[in-house]
């Protein structure tokens, strides 16, 4: 008689802590968890004809293989790029920027420059390659 009474007591486990923990974890993960968010960047290469046609109102941003930047032939650091681009656009809002990475330039360095310029002039940024390379 006493044994059965003990067994009944053991089966009565409160579910409250379980529910508490489940809800707390649920809320925690919903607020904190961030899965990798991907975005896309459209890329385009300028035709040589386009480059010639807008040569007078364009700037070339050259990116060397070690990440150094040259804005219209002048070496600059990354923080100067935005200011220079802004000045060009203030003078002419249709000013075009050509990004000219070297073959060994890392993609990440190119994307950083692309981000800066696309933010300022979304429709006026294109890639430039050396003549004789590619179909342009």
């Amino acid at each position: 008689m006493q044994i059965t009474a003990d067994q009944k007591k053991r089966t009565l486990i409160s579910l409250t802590p379980l529910i508490d923990v489940v809800f707390i974890l649920l809320v925690f993960f919903m607020l904190v968890t961030e899965f990798a968010k991907f975005s896309v960047v459209s890329l385009g290469i300028a035709d040589q004809d386009t480059v010639t046609a807008i040569e007078q109102t364009s700037s070339i941003v050259r990116i060397s293989s070690n990440g150094e930047l040259h804005f219209d032939g002048r070496e600059i650091n990354f923080s100067e790029l935005t200011a220079l681009a802004r000045n060009k656009l203030a003078a002419n809002e249709k000013h075009v920027f050509f990004i000219h990475p070297e073959d060994d330039t890392l993609l990440q360095d190119t994307v950083f420059v692309l981000d800066e310029l696309i933010t300022l002039a979304p429709d006026n940024v294109s890639f430039l390659r050396e003549q004789g390379k590619g179909p342009s």
């Binding site: 896309v40 459209s42 890329l43 385009g44 070297e102 060994d104 890392l106 993609l107 590619g134 179909p135």
Partner: peptide
Amino acid sequence: SMQKVFELMDIVRENGYANFQLL
């Protein structure tokens, strides 16, 4: 390297694609 990216872009352009996106 950007050379590889350009090679891929060239192939895409050869085939008439304008929609080339980088993730």
